[in-house]
Computed example of a mutant assay.
Amino acid sequence: MDRRFDLEAWRHFVLVAENGGLNLAANVHNIEPSTLSRSIKSLEASLGRPLFVHGKRPLSLTIFGQEALKEAQKLLAQHRVMLETLLSSKEKMEGVIRLAIPGGIGPGMVTPRILEFQQICPNVEFDVVQLHKGAVLDQTFSDGETLPHLTVGYSTGGSLAGLVYRYVGKMDFIPCCSPRYLSQYGSPQDPDELVNHKGLIFKGSTRKPTEFLVK
C-alpha cells in the first residue's frame, strides 16, 4: 500500500516528530505505539527514504525528515481549515427550499434523499409541491405564481420566465408482459409481428400517451 497519499500516516509522523518519540506521542494522543511504528515504517517504505535516524537516541529526524515535517505540518493545518470551513458553512446554511415533484416519484425516490440532505444541513427545510396537473411545469404553474426553487418533470422546453431548464436525458419506456402472455403469444422478433399482439398504453396527467414504438 502506497502510504505517501495517506493523510493519517503523515499525521502519525508529525505526532512522533513533535513529541520526540513513539512512546511519548502514543501516551499524549492515546494511540498504540505499534500503530505509530507501522505507519512510519510504511510511509518510509513508500517514500524510499528514512524520515528518522534509526538506532540512535534521542530520536532525531534526517535532513529529508526535517523538510517533510515542515510540509506535513502545513498540509495538516490546511486540512483542519478545510474541515472547519466545510462544517461551519453547513451549519450556517438555513432556509426553505421549495421543491416541485411529480406525485409518483416523491415517497420512494425524493423523500429519502431529503432526509439524507437534512442530516448534513439540519437547518434547511423543504416545502414540497406536488405537480398535481401533471409532471409538466407549464400545466401546474403560470407566469406570476411563486415558482419552485427546484423541480423534476417531463418537458421538451421551458416557457416559464424565471426558471432555468436543464436537460438531463430522455426517459425510455420498456414494454413488459406476463409469463402467461408470452406462453400464449410468444415474444415478437420483428416489428411486423406486432400486429399479432395486444397491449395497454398508459394515459394520465403525468405524461402524454405513447403513440409509436422504437427499437
Rank of each mutant, 00 (worst) to 15 (best):
residue 54 H to K: 11
residue 5 F to C: 03
residue 153 G to E: 02
residue 176 C to F: 14
residue 1 M to H: 07
residue 57 R to C: 00
residue 108 G to Q: 03
residue 138 D to F: 02
residue 74 K to P: 01
residue 165 Y to D: 08
residue 129 V to W: 05
residue 21 G to Y: 10
residue 94 E to I: 01
residue 16 V to C: 02
residue 19 N to V: 05
residue 69 L to S: 06
residue 97 I to E: 05
residue 48 G to I: 06
residue 5 F to I: 11
residue 101 I to H: 05
residue 142 S to H: 09
residue 112 P to M: 07
residue 205 S to M: 13
residue 128 V to M: 06
residue 158 G to C: 00
residue 96 V to I: 03
residue 80 R to I: 02
residue 44 E to C: 06
residue 154 Y to K: 07
residue 61 L to N: 12
residue 52 F to A: 07
residue 27 N to E: 15
residue 12 H to P: 08
residue 67 E to N: 01
residue 127 D to T: 00
residue 210 T to H: 02
residue 169 G to I: 08
residue 204 G to E: 13
residue 100 A to I: 02
residue 131 L to R: 01
residue 30 N to C: 02
residue 43 L to E: 07
residue 110 V to L: 01
residue 110 V to Q: 02
residue 151 T to S: 12
residue 110 V to H: 03
residue 154 Y to M: 13
residue 136 V to K: 14
residue 200 L to E: 14
residue 150 L to M: 12
residue 75 L to H: 10
residue 180 R to S: 02
residue 74 K to R: 15
residue 188 P to E: 10
residue 60 S to F: 03
residue 119 Q to I: 09
residue 213 L to A: 12
residue 80 R to T: 06
residue 70 K to E: 15
residue 14 V to M: 08
residue 190 D to V: 07
residue 123 N to K: 14
residue 150 L to T: 05
residue 42 S to M: 08
residue 27 N to G: 04
residue 142 S to Y: 06
residue 144 G to Q: 08
residue 166 R to P: 00
residue 211 E to Y: 07
residue 201 I to A: 09
residue 182 L to G: 04
residue 191 P to M: 08
residue 137 L to W: 03
residue 14 V to D: 08
residue 108 G to D: 04
residue 56 K to R: 15
residue 34 S to K: 11
residue 199 G to T: 09
residue 125 E to C: 09
residue 158 G to E: 00
residue 47 L to Q: 10
residue 155 S to P: 00
residue 185 Y to A: 10
residue 77 A to W: 10
residue 145 E to C: 04
residue 87 L to Q: 14
residue 189 Q to G: 14
residue 47 L to W: 11
residue 213 L to Y: 14
residue 64 F to A: 14
residue 181 Y to K: 03
residue 4 R to G: 01
residue 192 D to V: 12
residue 15 L to T: 05
residue 40 I to L: 15
residue 116 E to G: 10
residue 95 G to E: 00
residue 164 V to A: 10
residue 214 V to K: 13
residue 188 P to I: 09
residue 86 L to W: 00
residue 76 L to F: 05
residue 192 D to C: 07
residue 210 T to N: 01
residue 139 Q to V: 09
residue 208 K to Y: 14
residue 161 A to W: 00
residue 154 Y to L: 15
residue 120 I to P: 00
residue 202 F to D: 12
residue 151 T to E: 00
residue 180 R to H: 01
residue 214 V to E: 15
residue 28 V to N: 14
residue 82 M to F: 15
residue 204 G to L: 07
residue 7 L to C: 09
residue 13 F to G: 05
residue 75 L to Q: 14
residue 154 Y to P: 03
residue 158 G to H: 00
residue 172 D to E: 15
residue 165 Y to G: 05
residue 136 V to S: 15
residue 65 G to C: 11
residue 212 F to V: 15
residue 185 Y to T: 08
residue 118 Q to M: 11
residue 189 Q to C: 13
residue 209 P to M: 03
residue 207 R to Q: 14
residue 62 T to F: 11
residue 135 A to T: 09
residue 157 G to F: 02
residue 150 L to R: 07
residue 198 K to E: 09
residue 17 A to C: 04
residue 46 S to G: 11
residue 157 G to T: 01
residue 132 H to R: 08
residue 74 K to C: 06
residue 176 C to Q: 10
residue 144 G to Y: 06
residue 132 H to T: 11
residue 148 P to M: 02
residue 40 I to R: 06
